[in-house]
Design a protein around this nucleic acid. Structure first.
Lengths: 147, 147
DNA sequence: CCTGGACTTGACGTCAGCGTGAAGGTTTAC
DNA sequence: GTAAACCTTCACGCTGACGTCAAGTCCAGG
């Protein structure tokens, strides 16, 4: 099923600009017709779907290359090759690290917010009434031990 | 304790370029001496430390502005103002969303890897017909992993 | 006086993944 | 026959937070 760039873009839910960009990177080269138009087939559509799927997982374009090469080499799936599996594994490690970082940060920001809200409640008596029965009075510094 | 840009950069563990950048943004304006040199004091160091701390948490520079303004307004801490608390809360929501996304992606990539490893193990000994390896998700919505 | 280090402004480069136009050629539909 | 719709190649723009020159200024030590 030969098609031109616009048709492939539609079928893959992307844009012609994106396809030209992939070609610039050598990721998805196109054959040309006599008039210079790019022409693609169903195989290219599969390659492109592979790329887009991986991108949705947050893979960079360079990281999709082993999968694309694997498919082009005739393998049944983009992840049928060891190089692709390595990318999966590296990405998993990266994701785990990233998630751990974000969770640590979330905890820190959360505690900063909690502290700052407490201090605001303590410093501004006119606003929300103290939740704690022994909340500090506004003008005198008084330490209230948590009961 | 008046100091010039190099000294402030050293004390904050950053670079002069960064400080000039902050000034361009109006985030950390500097006084000038007669010869045109930037001059800073300990208050500026505190502002800068506030910025760097928030940056370590993944806040964008614009998001640090309320904190800096708050400190400059004379408040005891950068997060003593409602605007800063709002930034905290928005960032928490953003972090939660991002963490959830990454966890979902981690699970998907993990299962893809497991499946691909199984298929590789199955394909080497014998030759059972491969399933359709990739069922691309219907929507193409993308976002960056870490801020 | 001269050298070297710290300082100044200005402006372009980096990374990723395209978006957005300009200026023009080709094909298709009516 | 002509206008719409498609295609082509440049080539700059965008986001963020700076890095990296380049060319010139200022000041202290020897």
């Amino acid at each position: 099923m030969a098609m031109r760039i616009g048709e492939l873009a539609r079928q893959a839910g992307t844009t012609t600009r994106t396809l030209r960009h992939y070609e610039e990177l050598g990721l998805l080269p196109a054959r040309r017709t006599g008039n210079g138009y790019r022409t693609y087939d169903d195989g290219d559509l599969r390659l492109l779907q592979q790329i887009r799927t991986l991108q949705d997982f947050g893979f960079g374009l360079e990281e999709t290359r082993p999968f694309v090469d694997c498919l082009r080499a005739g393998h049944p799936a983009g992840d049928s090759c060891p190089a692709s599996l390595d990318v999966y594994r590296r990405k998993l490690a990266e994701l785990d690290e990233c998630i751990a970082d974000l969770q640590r940060i979330r905890a820190e920001v959360g505690s900063q917010l909690a502290r700052a809200e407490l201090e605001a409640a303590a410093d501004v008596p006119g606003g929300p009434p103290p939740l704690c029965a022994f909340a500090p009075p506004p003008e005198h510094e008084r330490e209230t031990g948590t009961p």
